[in-house]
Computed example of a mutant assay.
Amino acid sequence: MALADQPRILLVTRNLPPLIGGMEKLNHHIFLELGKRYAMAVAGPEGCASYLNAEAATVATFPTAPKSAFVMGSIRAAWQMGMSFRPDLILCGSGATAPAGFLIARRLGIPLITYLHGLDIVTSHVLYKSIFLPAIRASTTLITNSSNTARLALAHSIDARRLHILHPGVEMDVPEDIEPAAFRQAIEAGDRPILLSVGRLTERKGLYQFIVNCMPDLVRQQPDILLLIVGGEATDALSAKQGIGIQLTETIQQMNLASHVKLLGRIDDARLSQAYSASQLLLFPVLDLPGDVEGFGMVAVEAAAHGLPTVGFAAGGVPDAIAEGVSGYLVPPNDYQQMSKTILRYLSGESQISKDSCKQFANAFSWASFGEKLSNIVSPLLKPNDLLPITEHP
């Protein structure tokens, strides 16, 4: 069957390039993977069309800020594309676009899928709870990015019969000519053991607490240790505390850790691959905050794809992204003493995880596998079918 004769899917999401982050990468791959099987259209953020290689007639855009312009713009764009493209199914990339997806799905009498992340459930804003959560609950099918997000969804009265767990994917085609030695030379790291943190600078990532509670002890016992922090402020997020970078810089200076902690800011994918390959451990000391939760932990799987293990707190959806003793180590939340001990044991060689073990774990999360599992969720909705019970797609 020609692609033009295939069922039509409209992806409605705020999270696409040119915005940067794990959710943006996820939604981009949702578009790419479903596009192999179905005819696709998008209602997405301004500037996304050039990243999608899609026909202009199948993309409608909206502003991402301020919040009021985003909400109204997403509804207009979804309605415009829905009425012109006439999809057979709507897929919302997060709860933030669920109202827009719900309105056009109801108008056309077609199924609605919403992909849920941790913040889609725990956000406490009154208007969100009164407008967005009802639209989420009205979805024909819901996908969560981790088992923890699924538990949160069930606790917020979302029907288990409509729920699937599908973890985000990872790029397994790691370049062979990464040259980690060149990266070390560029940052003047020499042979020092490198701890790496990757992600947007948000309070939830727990870097301030890690520096305060762990770095002094790590430096005492491993005087040449170096922490590299990759990522910038979450300026594109709908709600995120700003100024984390300034707070970290001031704390590093006050604690005389400038020779042990470096903030690299945002770097491109090629240099990030170098950073993964040049490091000894990825750190993921995330916090469970009121109204904020780590939905999954894609960077831990990305690190594993490069053969790099992760030490992280077992908070939020992180346990789905780290296999104990296989791709890293899980530490009880907020146990900084155990976090330091685990890092030092690994650096000393007392405990080891092989690169092959990490890569084998990551392979189960390949984007190709993700696409197959997502298609298995989508396809029953494109023909009459009973609701399926909650299903995990590891």
Rank of each mutant, 00 (worst) to 15 (best):
Q6F: 00
L11W: 04
P18V: 06
I20H: 12
G21M: 08
L34H: 11
Y51Q: 10
T58F: 13
T58V: 12
A69W: 08
S74F: 05
S94M: 03
T97S: 13
A98Q: 03
R106L: 07
L119T: 10
S130V: 02
I143G: 04
A150T: 09
L152G: 13
I158Y: 06
R162M: 07
E171L: 14
E171A: 13
D173S: 13
P175Q: 07
A181S: 15
A186E: 15
G232N: 08
T235L: 15
G245F: 00
I246M: 05
E250P: 03
H260E: 01
G265N: 07
D268V: 04
L272C: 04
Q274T: 01
A275Q: 03
A278K: 00
L281N: 03
L283R: 05
E294T: 09
A300I: 02
E302K: 04
L308E: 04
A323E: 11
G325T: 05
G328R: 05
L330I: 08
V331E: 03
Q338M: 13
K341W: 05
I343A: 07
Y346C: 09
S351N: 12
K359G: 07
S366Y: 01
W367R: 10
S369R: 15
S369P: 03
E372V: 08
L374W: 04
V378P: 08
S379G: 00
N385P: 05
N385L: 02
